[in-house]
Write a protein that binds this DNA or RNA. Structure first.
Length: 106
DNA sequence: GTGCTGACACAGG
DNA sequence: ACCTGTGCCAGCA
């Protein structure tokens, strides 16, 4: 099969996954940060990559700029955060990541 | 080619 | 903390 046919990792997707894999435990990066770090695409493109190929990397380390984890995986993400001692902000009705401390830039 | 949708970001309320 | 509107980029019918 050719490259165009298969849904293989594009250059962009490959780079995104590489960056996510480089994020150290206890740290996180926002979608926009990754896009800016790569200097290409945009936050939504990073989100799309994570939605399709994110299963092979530490997806819980990729969150919104607010500190809100990926939709549908909040519970699973929280478990990882506790496991990695990620800086958290425990609110009354929701728990988010403290971006001020957890935000990581290569 | 056109329009909608999406694991987003930012500003307001 | 939550919702709405606007801007941006790419995939898909």
């Amino acid at each position: 099969m050719t490259a165009a046919q298969s849904s293989e990792l594009d250059g962009f997707a490959s780079r995104v996954l590489d960056v996510v894999d480089a994020i150290p435990p206890g740290r996180v990066m926002s979608y926009g940060d990754i896009a800016e770090y790569l200097g290409e695409g945009g936050p939504r493109q990073v989100g799309r990559v994570m939605a399709v190929w994110g299963g092979g990397v530490a997806w819980w380390r990729v969150i919104h700029s607010d500190g809100t984890p990926a939709p549908g995986h909040e519970r699973r993400a929280l478990a990882h955060y506790k496991q990695e001692s990620t800086p958290l902000r425990t609110g009354k009705t929701k728990v988010t990541v403290d971006m001020r401390l957890a935000r990581w830039t290569g």
